[in-house]
Design a protein around this nucleic acid. Structure first.
Length: 513
DNA sequence: TCTCACACATC
DNA sequence: GGATGTGTGAG
């Protein structure tokens, strides 16, 4: 939180449109200064979200990892992400309340393996885990609050425990994911769930990663050790390290790190920058909860989205990746060259390092009104904007929203959920549902129970696996979440919306990354 | 592929 | 000094 917000002068700029562009301001000295505005373009009809810009903190570090092929450890107990996901947000109305939350969505429907020092597709992805959202513990807070300092999501944890009771984000190992930031307006006159509810989604392509239970690429291990303070113990010269490891193993002679042995020396470019970049999810793949249907509100840097059609419509998430989806940057030729035929996808795209040049917009946000679930506007609107959200939590804590099978015909509860569409080529898989259950995973014991229950229900409840993506789309699966107790956070959230109504920045990400 | 105990680090 | 966050090798 080193970056104060004063320099952004947000307090004096209630009108987001008048917010000084970071490019024109003093951000050159910030460590996220390289992050160009996330949303250089704005569109109308976005409920005041059009001026919001998000800058990824430590972009350089993220890029380093990304160039190698970021891996994130997932454990049963939950593991933090490193690099941490921190952002600087500008353009918020200082007096308006916003909720900042993250989710991590499948980047594609592939399962990966790491062999020969590179990542490659090894099969079809397992069904998506229950979608969980991580709500920043400060939420809801005023724009002034968010703008005052870096917004850190470093406490977010990843787990591979499908029954995780802590509210951590559940991921599948050896699958690729894309973190996303959502900014939801929680203004009194624009309550969450109301017709006026607006939010925008920001995706930083360089934060994509493959979830692993142990690091596969030694380069990633080294990057983590070099940059993560908690891993300092593993730093040092090679000799020192080897002797230290020998000591750890009770040997008095240097040992060769397993990670070194495991991997063949390969001077080639990172697997991500080469083959894996080809494998990176297609725009279609990345449609999920907040994906756009029409692109109406999408404001994407044109240089990141090649044809207008790159405003992928969520109305057609079932479409297989097509030529229209892939916009290749200057590295395309090289990428294609490196892609093995079996890995070559029609939607292959240059990996993240390409798009965000120093002068290009960095995030890929979009803003759009959030259509309310049918007949559920008012009551929901109260939730987010009312005090209970914070007061009942005792202290502001992160909330996790766990997924479940969400159906429209099951609307009769106190909390809300939304089902996100499955990536296009995941039509045979379970949906990627989110249940907005306002989980307090830090200090509330019954929350854990709730989550366990929830997880249990996720597994035992009626499945939608038999449904295809079309039916799920059409059903606009919204429902309140029954497994909610008054002792938890109030019923604040509802199904965000079927993708058919929701517009988001995902298409931009897809196209740009 | 995954889990665990461990030593070492930060908070 | 305890809680928590790291990557490690063993299994």
């Amino acid at each position: 939180m080193a970056n104060g917000g004063d320099q952004f002068g947000l307090a004096e700029c209630p009108d987001s449109d008048s917010i000084e562009s970071p490019n024109e301001s003093k951000q050159e000295n910030e460590n996220y200064s390289l992050n160009s505005p996330a949303s250089p373009q704005t569109t109308t009809n976005q409920q005041g979200m059009e001026g919001i810009k998000v800058f990824l903190h430590d972009r350089d570090l993220w890029t380093k990892f990304d160039e190698v092929g970021t891996e994130m450890i997932i454990t049963k107990a939950g593991r933090r992400m490193f690099p941490s996901y921190k952002v600087k947000v500008t353009g918020l109305n200082p007096k308006t309340k916003y909720i900042l939350l993250m989710d991590i969505v499948p980047a594609d429907d592939h399962r990966y393996k790491f062999a020969d020092n590179k990542w490659s597709v090894t099969g079809k992805a397992e069904p998506a885990m229950p979608g969980r959202l991580y709500v920043h513990p400060d939420s809801p807070a005023t724009g002034a609050h968010w703008s005052r300092q870096l917004v850190s999501f470093q406490k977010l944890k990843l787990t591979n425990n499908h029954l995780d009771p802590f509210g951590h984000i559940i991921l599948n190992s050896m699958h690729k994911y894309q973190p996303r930031l959502h900014i939801v307006k929680a203004d009194e006159n624009n309550g969450f769930g109301s017709k006026n509810t607006a939010f925008c989604t920001h995706v930083f392509a360089e934060t994509a990663f493959i979830a692993v239970t142990s690091y596969q690429n030694h380069k990633i291990t080294q990057l983590k050790i070099e940059n993560n303070p908690f891993a300092k113990g593993f730093r040092g010269g090679d000799d020192n390290e080897l002797h230290r490891m020998a000591k750890l193993q009770g040997k008095d002679y240097p040992v060769v790190p397993r990670s070194t042995v495991r991997q063949r020396a390969c001077p080639a470019a990172s697997p991500f920058s080469a083959e894996t970049r080809c494998l990176r999810g297609s725009p279609d793949d990345l449609r999920s909860p907040f994906s756009c249907d029409t692109g109406l509100s999408v404001h994407s840097p044109q240089h990141m989205i090649s044809p207008p059609s790159a405003h992928y419509s969520l109305l057609q998430p079932h479409l297989q990746p097509g030529p229209q989806a892939y916009h290749c940057t200057k590295r395309k030729a090289a990428v294609e060259e490196r892609c093995s035929p079996e890995n070559r996808h029609p939607y292959k795209k240059a990996f993240t390092g390409d798009s965000p040049s120093g002068t290009e917009p960095y995030g890929h946000p979009s803003s759009f009104p959030l259509p309310p679930p049918p007949g559920l506007h008012n009551n929901i609107a109260m939730g987010l904007t009312d005090a209970p959200y914070t007061s009942e939590m005792g202290q502001r804590q992160a909330c996790m929203f766990a997924g479940s099978e969400n159906r429209l015909d099951d609307v009769n509860c106190t909390s809300w959920s939304y089902t996100c569409p499955v990536p296009s080529n995941m039509t045979n898989m379970d949906p990627y549902p989110y249940t907005l259950s306002a989980i307090n995973h830090q200090s509330s014991p019954h929350l854990g129970e709730h989550m366990a229950h929830e997880a249990y229900q996720n597994q035992t409840g009626p499945t939608q696996s038999s449904q295809n993506i079309h039916s799920r789309q059409l059903s606009s699966p919204l429902r309140e979440y029954p497994r909610y107790t008054p002792t938890m956070s109030p019923p604040l959230y509802h199904t965000l919306e079927s993708h058919a109504h929701v517009r988001c920045g995902l298409s931009e990400w897809s196209a740009a990354s």
